[in-house]
């Protein structure tokens, strides 16, 4: 997997590259928007991490140019501008995800991995993981033969985690997808919900499906 990091601050670029390399990615670094645009057009990258404020052409303009040229390389925008609707602006320009600075490395990696899995079968109405089944049309959840009662929010949370099964979902990603929040609520809301969900699906069994990932968030996976 080859990833391009476009970032004009050398130190930032270097710690991002180091962490990605440790995760087994091949990493290229560029600092200039125009050079980045040319590189993405010329080489096939699996994903691009793109800063908005750059030398030369800015990140938003790079994405617009790429999408105008029908280039679908997954793009994760990062930005230090910290404006509330920059995310909307970025996604409208054609980016796949947006992460405000400063960010946790695990958060960045979780998002990059989510980008790489993008385009998988998302339309399947029945989700399965081990003996847990979630029917998104009838809103019924079953663990084996046992029916699980879920509130609307718990159902959406479980659906999101099951659709992302096998990869880490950070708290911020869960907040965005399930709560529709684009800000950090500064509460332990998710952890409380996860606790309730875990009680409903993982008690009375040793085959746990829902796991915490320290400092990042949660993941669902088949028991070993």
């Amino acid at each position: 997997m080859r990833i391009l990091v476009v970032e004009d601050d050398k130190k930032t670029a270097s710690f991002i590259a180091k962490a990605l390399k440790e995760e087994g990615f091949v990493v290229d670094i560029l600092a200039d928007g125009d050079e980045a645009l040319a590189a993405i057009k010329a080489t096939t990258f699996d994903a691009v991490i793109l800063d908005i404020m750059l030398m030369g052409r800015d990140g938003l303009s790079v994405v617009r140019q790429l999408r105008a040229g029908a280039n679908r390389t997954p793009v994760l925008l990062v930005s230090a501008r910290g404006e509330v609707n920059e995310k909307v602006e970025g996604l409208n320009a054609g980016a796949d995800d947006y992460l405000p600075k400063p960010f946790a490395l695990d958060e960045l990696i979780a998002r990059v991995r989510a980008l790489l899995r993008r385009g998988g079968p998302a339309g399947n109405p029945t989700l399965r993981l081990a003996n847990l089944t979630l029917d998104t049309t009838t809103l019924v959840a079953l663990r084996g033969d046992r029916k699980i009662e879920l509130s609307a929010r718990e159902f959406r949370l479980l659906e999101y985690l099951m659709r992302s099964a096998g990869r880490v979902c950070s708290r911020a990603m869960i907040l965005e997808k399930v709560w529709d929040y684009d800000f950090d609520p500064g509460t332990n809301l998710i952890d409380v919900y996860i606790g309730k969900l875990r009680e409903k699906i993982d008690t009375r069994t040793d085959a746990k499906l829902l796991h915490s990932v320290r400092g990042v968030g949660y993941t669902m996976k088949e028991p070993l």
């Binding site: 601050d9 130190k11 930032t12 710690f15 230090a80 400063p102 960010f103 946790a104």
Partner: peptide
């Protein structure tokens, strides 16, 4: 920018 670097390096 410095916050990002500090956080990233510590991380």
């Amino acid at each position: 920018t410095p916050l990002t670097v500090m956080r990233g390096q510590l991380d």
